[in-house]
């Protein structure tokens, strides 16, 4: 059993089952929407987790890349008539390019200095989106044209699907593929080199690993994950505002990584699920909602300091041994 769980493809397999079976127990499209939001967030969080959990680099500006993807999907079709799907690709490529250019100088910084540099980057992106209203619609946000998949399905196959269902499956598929790519990356020579970088940069360098290149590769990969998630959210919602790219969203993504467990792909999904679902559960407490959210975050981190998934795994393992 545990050997099975430790297999490389265990996580994508678990996710396939989860994505496939969940709709059977979800009573309405509201729950489908929540699940879709979890998948989309989790997708971005997996990318960020590669950077934080495996390469050991913090980014407090990842919502910037998320925003680039989101606004690419919104602005390019509206302003330049680019078909939606190409806009998504362009957003991802642009994100990769920007990550490459920004990453080269930024990733030389360490620890909290890297944190503040990425934070600055994220704020710059958010500020451009907020200020250049003639392109982005400014603080009031901008509508996102749909991809036309629903129409296509109807005309080609006579299929009628609801937006919520359609995006549940798109986001679910994205998540499974994203997780699969991530586990393969982690298990590749690149991944092992990454973990070496995480453990000790100097030791890794001595062992002949091009540390700077490794870090840059992961930074670019994580930026692409964030941009694709951003595009997905924009297309799913049909409307986005600059907060998508804001500092608070960056913090939320980092919190999801740490809460679920750094270096755990499954943890990324759990972290995203907790922070998406929790506010929905806490609505019954009205004014005490934020107080409880903060309290729960602290309690989780104090008792499961390695994150929920690694923490629980350790608990279970400890019990099994005893």
């Amino acid at each position: 059993m545990s050997a099975l769980l430790n297999h490389r493809l265990a996580v994508p397999a678990v996710l396939i089952v989860l994505v496939a079976l969940l709709p059977l127990v979800l009573p309405s499209s509201f729950y489908l929407r929540i699940a879709t939001l979890v998948w989309i967030s989790a997708f971005a969080v997996i990318g960020l987790n590669l950077l934080m959990g495996y390469a050991g680099q913090v980014s407090l500006g990842h919502a910037g890349f998320f925003g680039i993807g989101a606004y690419a999907a919104a602005v390019l079709p509206a302003q330049l008539g680019v078909p939606g799907i190409f806009a998504v690709v362009i957003g991802a490529v642009a994100s990769a390019l920007i990550a490459y250019l920004v990453g080269r100088p930024i990733l030389r910084l360490k620890g909290h200095y890297l944190a503040v540099a990425t934070l600055g980057f994220g704020i710059l992106v958010a500020m451009v989106i907020n200020n250049e209203a003639w392109i982005t619609g400014g603080p009031d946000g901008i509508a996102v044209a749909s991809l036309g998949i629903k129409k296509l399905l109807k005309s080609a196959f006579g299929l009628k699907v609801k937006t919520a269902e359609l995006w549940y499956w798109i986001a679910g598929a994205m998540l499974v593929v994203g997780a699969w790519v991530a586990v393969n990356l982690v298990d590749s020579p690149t991944g092992r080199a990454l973990r070496a970088v995480h453990d000790s940069e100097i030791a890794a360098r001595v062992a002949g690993i091009d540390v700077a290149r490794m870090k840059l590769v992961v930074f670019v990969v994580s930026a692409v994950y964030a941009a694709l998630a951003g595009s997905a959210l924009a297309l799913f919602n049909g409307f986005i505002t600059p907060d998508t790219a804001g500092f608070l969203h960056s913090i939320e993504l980092v919190t999801m990584v740490v809460l679920g467990g750094m270096g755990s792909i499954l943890g990324s999904v759990v972290g995203a699920a907790v922070l998406v679902v929790l506010p929905q559960l806490l609505t019954m407490f009205h004014d005490y909602e934020h107080l409880l959210l903060g309290l729960l975050m602290m309690v989780f981190m104090i008792f499961l300091r390695a994150g929920i998934v690694p923490g629980l795994r350790a608990l279970v393992a400890g019990r099994g041994a005893a």
């Binding site: 499209s29 509201f30 929407r33 919602n237 505002t241």
Partner: peptide, 15 residues
């Protein structure tokens, strides 16, 4: 001020 969250709550009100 989270537009996505607003949409989620709107869906919740309806569904």
């Amino acid at each position: 001020v989270d537009a996505s969250k607003a949409r989620t709550f709107a869906t919740r009100l309806v569904e």
